[in-house]
Simulated scan of single mutants.
Amino acid sequence: MAGKNKKGGKGANPKEIRNSKVHRDYLVEDTYEAGIVLSGTEVKSIRAGKAQISEGFCRFHKDEFFIYALHIDEYAFGNINNHVPRRERKLLLKKSELKKIARALEAGGKSAIPLRLYFKEALIKVEIGICTGKKLFDKREDLKKKAQMRDIDRVMKEVRVR
């Protein structure tokens, strides 16, 4: 008898798809939750965990906000009406949020990058971050802090054991 799939195992439904490179390469200032316009086979493919947002970015086109370079694999059981894996997809936000994002991007030096793709009840949402790129010395500083925190945790664990 085969065992049940546990979380994170092969074939399990993922709760969210994260962009692992964002916090390493960017400093996230603001976040927004946006809906996304998808076709039926795209939703089924995301439910199967077959999506990548690591190369994604967002941009305005004629007063509408789109996400580009979001890769959603073709649905395995789809027919000739299957979707195109890489296409721009419209993001759904309130007008006030769109204006805030537009002002932040026009100021310069900032990018709108997808942080995660997740389910909110039956809907698929995208968390968008307004980000500033990190310099090399910022990345090194973060690595030093991470190493220091790891050392502190190790020492505290030894003290608790005694």
Score class of each variant (00 low, 15 high):
160 R>C: 13
125 K>L: 12
125 K>F: 07
111 S>P: 01
109 G>L: 08
100 K>G: 08
129 G>R: 04
144 K>N: 03
120 K>H: 11
112 A>I: 05
125 K>N: 09
109 G>P: 03
152 I>S: 04
124 I>M: 00
151 D>L: 06
116 R>N: 10
112 A>E: 08
136 L>E: 12
147 A>D: 12
148 Q>H: 09
112 A>W: 03
129 G>H: 07
103 R>T: 13
100 K>A: 15
133 G>S: 14
150 R>Y: 09
154 R>H: 14
160 R>H: 14
153 D>W: 01
115 L>K: 01
143 L>H: 02
106 E>T: 12
138 D>V: 01
115 L>F: 02
100 K>H: 15
105 L>Q: 13
158 E>T: 04
137 F>T: 12
101 I>W: 07
149 M>E: 14
157 K>V: 04
135 K>C: 01
107 A>W: 09
142 D>S: 08
146 K>Q: 13
100 K>N: 15
110 K>E: 14
123 L>A: 08
143 L>Y: 01
155 V>W: 06
147 A>V: 08
98 L>V: 00
145 K>D: 11
153 D>N: 08
120 K>F: 12
154 R>E: 12
111 S>R: 08
162 R>I: 14
145 K>W: 09
114 P>M: 01
147 A>Y: 04
161 V>F: 09
117 L>Q: 08
133 G>L: 13
99 K>I: 09
119 F>K: 02
132 T>G: 06
151 D>R: 11
143 L>G: 01
132 T>C: 00
117 L>E: 10
127 E>Y: 00
146 K>N: 10
133 G>I: 11
99 K>V: 13
104 A>H: 00
111 S>G: 08
160 R>F: 11
111 S>C: 13
154 R>S: 15
134 K>S: 06
120 K>Q: 12
120 K>D: 15
122 A>R: 09
128 I>T: 03
156 M>H: 06
101 I>T: 13
113 I>W: 06
98 L>Q: 08
126 V>S: 06
121 E>I: 01
150 R>M: 10
128 I>Q: 00
134 K>I: 02
127 E>D: 07
116 R>L: 05
142 D>Q: 08
124 I>C: 05
154 R>F: 11
116 R>P: 04
121 E>D: 11
129 G>C: 11
105 L>S: 09
115 L>Y: 01
99 K>D: 15
149 M>Q: 15
137 F>K: 13
102 A>W: 11
159 V>A: 05
106 E>L: 13
128 I>K: 00
131 C>V: 05
121 E>M: 02
112 A>S: 10
99 K>E: 15
118 Y>H: 07
152 I>A: 10
126 V>W: 03
122 A>Y: 05
130 I>N: 01
